[in-house]
């Protein structure tokens, strides 16, 4: 029998307990994002602006950047990734524990941005999976907030391994 989105929403598609647990876990995880800022270029300025008190990412529970991949669950890739940097990014991603999400912050990480040349990776999704793309060169902090809210929605609505 086909389920309607409403039935999914109400948890009728699967046993009541698992879906409710998913919701609780999603609720907990979306408000306790520990991000790893992989900052390589000018977008870092906008990341700092978004993280500091004026825009204050802490309002969304993402206020504490961790500089160890082992302690973080969202990899924020901020800035130009060159071919020579790509193995480092891949290694950082591999070192992060599940569950983990990746945010491509700025045009460079999405498609190489203004750098269509021999040195720059044309989008980080060539080497690691990306959950949210935040466009802009650099993205305004408000777009970063929007991306963060979209990431939270994604975390809330996905299935969680326990």
């Amino acid at each position: 029998m086909e389920m309607s989105p409403l039935q999914h929403e109400m948890g009728l598609a699967e046993p009541f307990v698992t879906t409710k647990l998913d919701k609780v876990l999603g609720w907990g995880r979306k408000y306790s994002i520990f991000n790893y800022p992989f900052v390589t270029a000018c977008c870092g300025m906008e990341y700092m602006s978004a993280a500091c008190s004026r825009y204050d990412m802490d309002r969304f529970g993402a206020g504490l950047p961790r500089f160890s991949p082992r302690q973080s669950d969202v990899l924020l890739v901020v800035g130009t990734i060159t071919h020579k940097m790509a193995p480092v990014l891949k290694q950082v991603y591999d070192q992060m524990c599940e569950p983990k999400w990746v945010v491509a912050f700025g045009a460079c990480t999405i498609s190489g941005g203004p750098y269509n040349n021999y040195a720059v990776l044309q989008g980080i999704d060539q080497i690691i999976p990306v959950d949210i793309y935040i466009p802009g060169c650099p993205p305004h902090p408000e777009i970063v907030m929007d991306g963060l809210i979209k990431l939270q929605a994604k975390i809330q609505h996905q299935k969680h391994e326990v």
Binding site: H83, K84, A86, P87, V88, K90, Q91, D94, N116, N117, Y118, A119, L121, Q122, Q126, I127
Partner: peptide, 28 residues
């Protein structure tokens, strides 16, 4: 400046602007 897997010499005027280089690093 570049890495060993790089093909060609990029500042030559006949280097193709849209040429793509092989990815390097773990898993590539």
């Amino acid at each position: 400046l570049l890495y060993d897997a790089f093909v060609g010499h990029p500042l030559r005027k006949d280097y193709k602007m849209k040429a793509r280089q092989p990815l390097i690093g773990p898993g590539s």
